[in-house]
Design a protein around this nucleic acid. Sequence first.
DNA 1: GTCCATGTTCTTTA
DNA 2: CTAAAGAACATGGA
Length: 284
Amino acid sequence: MLDMPELPEVQTVVDEMHSRVTGDTIVAAVLSRADYVRTPTPDFAERIQRRRILSVSREGKRIWLDLSAPGGRTRKAGSDARCRLHLGMSGRITFEAADAPLAPHTHLRLRFRRLAAELRFSDARRFGGIWFYNGSDGDAMRAARLGADALTLSAGTLQELCRRKRPIKSLLMDQSLIGGLGNIYCDEALFSARLHPLRRACELSDADIRRLAGSIRDVLRRALRHGGSTLRDYVRADGRAGEFQRLHRVYGREGHACARCRRQIERIVIAGRSTHFCPQCQNG
DNA sequence: GTCCATGTTCTTTA
DNA sequence: CTAAAGAACATGGA
């Protein structure tokens, strides 16, 4: 359980990819599992070669690679492409020497013209995936659109979404409404805003919603400042084990004392997910 | 052997 | 239409 890719973790990956490969050209691709490419693209490895990475960006928990036409500089209309990556629950993107030992479940390796290291995409559970679109596949790319990005979610937008009566936790987790929040940062944001995860969204006051929007932004920004890899720091046990407790006030702390009031943190299940909260602080 | 965890998508049920 | 619950996917760690 080394990676919990929610928005901050994905943004960290995107930043690293951007700094390493934007402007570089893919010269070789090895796809070890054809079915990891979710769009029908039987010749995927061929199709992405000789393309230049025009940009790397994030949309919710999705990673987008904008690719030039094969061969590089001249962009013929319609021959560019986009590639969407999703880390799922166990996806990892790393840059390693081409002769470095291969991690298990490495599904894709990309080598570049300039960069010495190769990009590796591994994913043990294969809940992630790769989607490939031709420049002309606009409709396919727009399908399953994401909601507002969690990092820049405004109180006004959140208020619109909160017309629904479903539990606020379940609403925050719905990627078609808000893109980027997962189980950990949901629980943390609700604790920070002192809201019970089962509160019906439509029953939140304007003040509740403004507080929650601020909490979401603050929790995500704090995680971003810490490189978005809180659990990894914890597991690494290299002297930074305190990181976990510093960053998580409720997630994974069932039975522990609330940092604010010392009551025991409780765990319930909402929408099939473990949900951690303080029954005292989050009674509203 | 059991239970649990992450995220998404689909089906069933109301 | 909303929405909630459950299953499915796959793997590894406790």
